[in-house]
Amino acid sequence: MNSHDFSHFPNYLQEAWETRFFGVRLDNSARYTFGRDGFTLQLQHSFGGQPGDFKAGATDAVSVSYSGSAISAGVVAQRSNDAANRHADVLGAGAKYVIGSVSMYGLYVHSRRDAGFTVGTTAGSPLANTSMLSNSNTVAGPNTQTASRRDSFVDVGVNYYVTPALSAGVSLMFDNAAGVAGGQSGKIKTLVALVDYHLSKRTDVYAEFDRNVLNGASVTDPNNPVGGFGGRANQTGATLGLRTVF
């Protein structure tokens, strides 16, 4: 519900890192879905998992989407709470347009996390938002963040279906982060290319190439959605893989 993977990239952090703004998964969730004439409304509540506190760790989200023969689009809003009633708010909007064998897509996400926002763990604290990004630590150490964190993320890409089973695509991603550590800002730039061949409806083989470049405070940011590169400003990866969708 919370994000749309128009590109069907493998689940690698270096190329699917925008999902961490929303949370890779939200445990203990209840969802209501209503659809009509191509439009779909979804409401979701993820229970925090902390006994005696209904709100701590809980996440609420709402999305509205439309799916047609050529155009698909959707918007989503989400709020997550931590144990101290600090918030992580996320807004997202995306669209896909299909012309024959070519699919073009775009996605925008704005994320804001309060200073000190801390996600749950598996050791008794709120559980529903364990896979989200925190905003407590900075490069200076634990519990040193004093500013809210804002990320503005853009993803544009294109997929070309050579045959119904074989596709090739490329995606460009950009994140502008403010409040990384005090008044510092940083940037993340990502290029991903993917060739994908479907053996069946559930199973495919793929080859991918990714290039990530960090600028400014993002080089040493412990809350980077793309992760850290050991103090380096860039990283290049390539993968061959086989996957089955359950």
Rank of each mutant, 00 (worst) to 15 (best):
G183P: 03
G94F: 06
A147S: 15
G74W: 06
N137T: 04
H87C: 00
A77M: 07
A177K: 03
Q50H: 02
N135C: 15
V162E: 02
S67F: 01
S46G: 11
G94H: 11
M104P: 01
G179D: 12
S152M: 12
L107G: 00
Y160A: 07
F153V: 03
Y66D: 00
D155A: 12
G179A: 08
A147M: 06
N176C: 01
R150K: 13
D155E: 11
T130D: 12
A147Y: 12
T144V: 03
T118L: 14
V154Y: 13
S111M: 04
F153L: 11
A193N: 07
A70C: 05
A115I: 03
N137S: 15
S80F: 01
L127E: 11
R149P: 01
G183C: 05
A181Q: 13
K189R: 11
Y161W: 04
K96Y: 06
S134L: 02
G94V: 06
K96D: 13
N81D: 15
P164Q: 07
D60G: 09
R150W: 06
G116M: 06
K189F: 07
V192Y: 15
H87R: 08
S63Y: 02
R150D: 04
G92P: 06
A147T: 11
R86K: 15
T146C: 05
T59C: 01
F153S: 13
A123F: 15
S131K: 04
T163P: 05
A178I: 00
V139S: 14
V109N: 12
S67M: 08
A83E: 13
P164M: 11
L166Q: 05
G120M: 11
S185L: 02
G116F: 09
V62Y: 05
D155I: 02
T163N: 09
G48L: 03
K187P: 00
V139Q: 14
R150F: 08
S80A: 15
R112F: 02
M173G: 12
Q145E: 10
G141Q: 06
F47V: 03
S134F: 02
T118H: 08
F174S: 11
V192G: 12
V158S: 14
Q145D: 00
A88D: 09
K55G: 09
I99F: 13
N135I: 08
A140Q: 10
R79G: 01
T118W: 06
G48S: 04
A88R: 09
A147L: 01
S69I: 05
M132W: 00
V139C: 04
G49Q: 09
A61S: 15
Y108D: 00
N143Q: 12
G57I: 08
F117L: 06
S167W: 10
S152A: 14
V192D: 15
L107K: 14
T121W: 14
V62M: 14
I71R: 05
P126S: 06
Y161L: 11
Y108V: 05
V192K: 07
G157N: 05
L107A: 01
D175C: 00
V102I: 10
V139R: 13
V180E: 04
T146M: 13
A168G: 08
I99A: 14
L133N: 03
G49I: 02
S131D: 10
F153E: 09
V102Y: 11
T138M: 09
V109Q: 07
T130P: 01
S171W: 00
G157C: 05
P164L: 13
A88I: 00
V192W: 03
Y108K: 02
V64L: 15
A147V: 08
